[in-house]
């Protein structure tokens, strides 16, 4: 199911939590929603899941507007809210069965569905416990299980890996990636490596507006089109090497990282690569090139660039 968001705006009094955003997510796509606290991620998710009513703009799911079709569309959406609210007085199995029944899963298939979710989310040992006896990580799994129990075409996950230990994070990411092949997934997170590991596409939102949209590779390119190389050259005098590098026509900026070991960071002129020229230079001068690494702009830097203004 495709989700199309058109000029969506949400006001809380005077303040705009979401400010005229538009984007589209297609089936089989995992969209990572990034942004600082209060950027409007959760509000957007609440609007898509129809917890909040759309007042300005529109959300079209599978060709139907959420205005007027909310009650039929909700059945196709699985939602894990931000703080993962649960009926803590219920046992895991009862709770999952309750959620399945609410999402109109046919009664005779509910036990199978519950069993499947318990297996998928690794809840087998905890399934008879009450939810208030579970640790945070297991509660998060229960939250994920309730979101997926009716096999929804759309999954909206608000910070799905908070509270999980590193092993669980890897498992959940893997699970989301698997599910994402047939479903439309939107997930929000603060953890940047997570987006890179899980998502096909990244949307960065700040102060209610979209500031970047694309794969992590295209975002990198957008943020900094210039190549940065880390180079170590042995057998040369530091200053001579520095001067020689500066004379290479493809280089723009040279930083000395380590004088003793002759380590430099070289930024190339836009749309040019200095790799071949540096290699040629070393060969010419008889220097030994012991390291040449292309440095990638970190997603953290892109994020900071786009959201700190």
């Amino acid at each position: 199911m495709n989700i199309k968001i058109q000029n969506l705006t949400k006001r809380y009094g005077e303040q705009k939590a979401v400010d005229d955003i538009s984007f589209e997510v297609k089936t089989g796509e995992i969209l990572g929603f990034l942004g600082p606290n209060g950027a409007g991620k959760t509000t957007t998710m609440k609007l898509i899941t129809n917890f909040l009513e759309v007042q300005e703009g529109d959300i079209i799911i599978n060709g139907k507007s959420v205005k007027g079709h909310a009650d039929t569309l909700k059945r196709h959406i699985g939602y894990l809210p931000e703080h993962n609210p649960l009926y803590t007085d219920m046992a895991v199995l009862d709770y999952l069965a309750f959620c399945a029944a609410l999402q109109q899963v046919p009664k005779n298939t509910i036990p199978n569905k519950v069993r499947e979710m318990v297996r998928l989310c690794g809840l087998d040992r905890e399934k008879h416990k009450r939810i208030n006896e579970l640790s945070k990580g297991y509660r998060q799994r229960v939250g994920l299980a309730q979101a997926m129990i009716h096999d929804p075409e759309i999954l909206i996950l608000d910070e799905p890996t908070t509270g999980l230990d590193p092993n669980q994070i890897v498992e959940i990411r893997e699970l989301i990636r698997q599910l994402g092949r047939q479903k439309t997934v939107i997930l929000s997170t603060h953890i940047l490596p997570e987006v890179e590991a899980t998502c096909d596409r990244i949307l960065i939102i700040n102060k209610g507006k979209i500031v970047a949209d694309g794969t992590s590779a295209t975002l990198r390119k957008q943020a900094q089109g210039k190549e940065v190389l880390r180079v170590q050259i042995e057998d040369g005098e530091n200053e001579t090497v520095y001067d020689a590098l500066q004379n290479v026509y493809t280089t723009e900026l040279i930083d000395i990282v380590d004088t003793a070991k002759n380590v430099f960071e070289i930024q190339s002129v836009a749309d040019m690569s200095s790799k071949r020229e540096i290699f040629k230079l070393c060969a010419e001068k008889g220097w030994v090139l012991t390291e040449m690494t292309a440095l990638e702009t970190k997603l953290e830097d892109i994020f900071r660039d786009l959201t700190l203004n």
Partner: peptide, 14 residues
Amino acid sequence: KSGTIELLLTKAVT
């Protein structure tokens, strides 16, 4: 208070 209302209102229930 516990936020479970969000859970209920986003399920297929009017």
